[in-house]
Amino acid sequence: MLDRSAKGVFVIAPTPFLPGGALDLDSTDRMTDAFIAAGASGMTILGVMGEAPKLTEAESLTFVDRVLKRVKGRIPVVVGASAPGFAQMKAISRGSMDLGAAGIMVSPAPGLKGDEAVVSYIAQAMDVVDGPFVLQDYPQLTGITMTAAMIARMAQDQRMVMLKAEDWPGLDKLTAVRKLEAEGKMPRVAILGGVGGQFLPEELARGADGIMTGYAYPEMLVKVCQLMGAGRRDAAQDLFDLHLPLIRTEVQPGLGLAIRKYVLKKRGIIAHDVLRAPGPKMSAETAGEVDYLMGRLERAEARLAA
């Protein structure tokens, strides 16, 4: 089970599809193997980049089951269960935990008004999940702002084991949460950054325990975490900077998942870069730009390894 000591790189996995839109379970196996081989400390599935709203409940649990069977307990798997209503949240979260998931991730529902409404919603969600709980703080998506003080209140429930910190700009909030912990005003929780990995070195320097994101070169994220942990910040930043142009390209609103799946396909990690409809399609010009960035990145890494 996930607990407050979690750290490292939790790779957010997309959901692979066949050209006709069905789940691609063979690619699911290959993708799971690739992320573990890259050094992932964990995986997160059915997250924002997992196209979860496009899946039926049965498909969601089929995908969860396939990933967990492939993982075989080697790393913890977190399942996203944010939903418009608690009935759907309960079905996905309880079903996933029964299959062997390590924890469940939920964000506040859009439209909540005021701090008390948000805190109350998360308390109810923790009762629904009734297991290790990951609080996703992603106001760019939900429109819900959670202050450090609100997070401290929610963390009093021992079931909240992790904060996925994705506010933007959010580095000062990360520092504020760690300050409240140091002052004894809240228990320490695991904090993993996000927002596509754009601020990984800074998040680690501010006290994050790692990152939860789906960048298509997770081995870089792992290496940066290792270098930062060894006190080699310049080396970590140099490596990160090589990838920043592709990270920037991958996090484009609307088109980002199409680009990420395209890169994963080119790397041989999934067989198809299909998004389930409705979804954007990459233009030939965008594909050419991504090809250029991938080639440039791989040449740069080859020079460093020489």
Rank of each mutant, 00 (worst) to 15 (best):
203 E>G: 14
223 K>P: 00
199 F>E: 12
208 A>W: 07
202 E>W: 10
210 G>E: 02
233 R>P: 00
230 A>C: 03
212 M>N: 14
216 A>Q: 12
243 H>K: 05
227 L>M: 10
234 D>C: 04
225 C>E: 01
228 M>K: 03
203 E>I: 08
202 E>Q: 15
199 F>D: 04
240 F>G: 00
206 R>K: 15
216 A>E: 13
226 Q>F: 04
222 V>E: 07
221 L>F: 09
230 A>Y: 02
225 C>R: 02
198 Q>N: 11
247 I>A: 06
206 R>F: 11
251 V>Q: 06
242 L>C: 08
217 Y>V: 10
212 M>F: 11
245 P>Q: 10
232 R>V: 03
202 E>D: 15
223 K>R: 15
224 V>P: 00
211 I>L: 14
251 V>K: 07
248 R>T: 15
244 L>E: 04
239 L>V: 03
252 Q>H: 13
205 A>M: 11
224 V>S: 04
233 R>Q: 15
236 A>E: 01
214 G>N: 08
210 G>V: 06
211 I>D: 03
219 E>L: 08
215 Y>E: 06
235 A>W: 03
229 G>W: 01
241 D>W: 10
212 M>A: 15
253 P>N: 12
213 T>K: 10
210 G>Q: 05
199 F>W: 13
237 Q>N: 05
209 D>W: 03
208 A>V: 10
252 Q>R: 15
203 E>V: 12
240 F>Q: 03
246 L>M: 13
243 H>R: 13
247 I>F: 07
222 V>H: 08
244 L>Q: 12
209 D>K: 01
249 T>M: 15
224 V>N: 04
224 V>I: 13
222 V>F: 09
247 I>N: 05
243 H>G: 14
244 L>C: 06
224 V>Q: 02
200 L>D: 04
240 F>H: 11
239 L>T: 04
237 Q>W: 07
243 H>I: 06
214 G>P: 01
253 P>H: 08
232 R>N: 09
225 C>V: 10
214 G>Q: 02
242 L>F: 06
231 G>N: 03
226 Q>M: 11
199 F>R: 11
201 P>T: 14
232 R>P: 00
245 P>G: 07
201 P>A: 13
211 I>T: 11
232 R>W: 01
241 D>V: 02
218 P>R: 01
228 M>G: 01
204 L>Y: 09
214 G>R: 01
240 F>A: 07
234 D>W: 06
235 A>V: 02
230 A>T: 00
242 L>P: 00
238 D>Q: 14
223 K>L: 06
211 I>K: 05
230 A>D: 10
215 Y>P: 03
199 F>M: 15
248 R>K: 15
233 R>Y: 08
249 T>I: 11
251 V>F: 09
240 F>V: 09
220 M>P: 00
244 L>P: 00
212 M>W: 08
205 A>E: 09
254 G>Q: 01
201 P>Y: 10
237 Q>L: 14
212 M>D: 04
211 I>R: 05
200 L>I: 12
232 R>L: 07
251 V>D: 01
200 L>K: 10
218 P>H: 04
237 Q>S: 13
208 A>G: 12
208 A>N: 02
230 A>K: 11
241 D>N: 15
209 D>N: 14
236 A>K: 07
207 G>W: 05
236 A>F: 02
242 L>A: 05
199 F>C: 12
237 Q>P: 01
215 Y>H: 12
217 Y>C: 09
